[in-house]
């Protein structure tokens, strides 16, 4: 019974809190630009509106066009439940759950790309091609980051891996993971969530033809992915295990907020990179994680 309650509580937390993050980022951007900006709860309104709307589907699209976003959303929710939340731990935890988390994200990506290709549109082809290609470098970076945490703690499950801080390599790891967060969630400088020039986008261009409830599911999934990466980043860097539960919860919430403010600031101050530069930046992120791994290896030797 307690288990069910815990699970439901977690789900509510993840599902309800996630759409807040894009609102926070937009707030920060508006503040820097001196605008009033959209309300923090804008995404909630959008989701509620989209959920009620009808769907326009391409004549070419198969049922996979709708099934893809649904499967991707379940995969992302599953990944979220594997992610520990500070002192509360994770809903499910087993040895090797971190690999499952990475591959669930990959499954979500596969489904999004598949659904994008359903329409036979060149734009969505571009977006899907970019998404799956940059993922190669991003996944290399993530697995390296995970390796470094795993070397640090001698463990392969998220709960014990994320309890202490990343140690001496924390700064490197934070920089690497933050870059991956920006890339995986299609933020500036990799992608611009605001642009309407489809040629220059990744995620937005993949969902061009989606509308109504499927689009709502995609947007909600994307916000959960953002929260997931923020939580991972904060827990990898801050020593949650050493704090009291209350302090840890506060640190987690504050950390996520800080990451979002960081994203908002970057989005306000930087321009989007040219696409041919994207691999370079992602390789840098990979190298940062690799150095973090080497530091972790050396660090524990003593």
């Amino acid at each position: 019974m307690m288990l069910m309650l815990d699970l439901i509580l977690r789900l509510v937390l993840w599902l309800l809190l996630a759409p807040l993050l894009p609102g926070v980022i937009n707030r920060v951007k508006a503040w820097v630009a001196g605008r009033r900006g959209p309300p923090v709860l804008q995404l909630y309104y959008d989701l509620a509106r989209l959920w009620q709307k009808g769907v326009v589907m391409s004549t070419l699209a198969s049922p996979g066009f709708v099934a893809g976003p649904a499967v991707a959303w379940v995969a992302l929710t599953g990944a979220a439940l594997l992610m520990p939340l500070g002192p509360a731990g994770a809903a499910f935890s087993f040895r090797g759950d971190v690999l499952m988390l990475i591959y669930l994200l990959a499954l979500a990506r596969f489904c999004t790309a598949w659904a994008a290709m359903e329409t036979g549109s060149a734009f969505e082809g571009m977006g899907a091609a970019r998404e799956v290609s940059y993922a190669v470098l991003a996944e290399a970076a993530i697995i390296t980051a995970v390796l470094s945490l795993s070397v640090q703690t001698g463990s392969v499950s998220l709960v014990s891996m994320l309890a202490p801080s990343a140690g001496a390599g924390a700064v490197l790891l934070a920089a690497g993971l933050f870059t991956v967060l920006l890339a995986e969630n299609c933020r500036v400088p990799f992608d611009d969530p605001n642009t309407h020039l489809e040629l220059t986008m990744i995620h937005e261009v993949m969902v061009l033809d989606h509308s109504g409830p499927p689009l709502a599911v995609i947007l909600h999934g994307a916000s959960m992915k953002l929260l997931l990466f923020a939580v991972l980043l904060v827990q990898a860097v801050l020593p949650m295990g050493d704090m009291s539960p209350l302090a840890a919860t506060g640190a987690l919430a504050g950390g996520v907020l800080a990451v979002m403010i960081g994203v908002g600031l970057i989005e306000s101050l930087l321009a989007r990179l040219a696409f041919r530069r994207v691999p370079l930046l992602l390789t840098t992120a990979f190298l940062l994680c690799l150095f973090a791994l080497l530091v972790a290896w050396k660090g524990n030797r003593v």
Partner: peptide
Amino acid sequence: NSVRRGLTW
């Protein structure tokens, strides 16, 4: 909700 089929956008 209603599904309308249309040309790819």
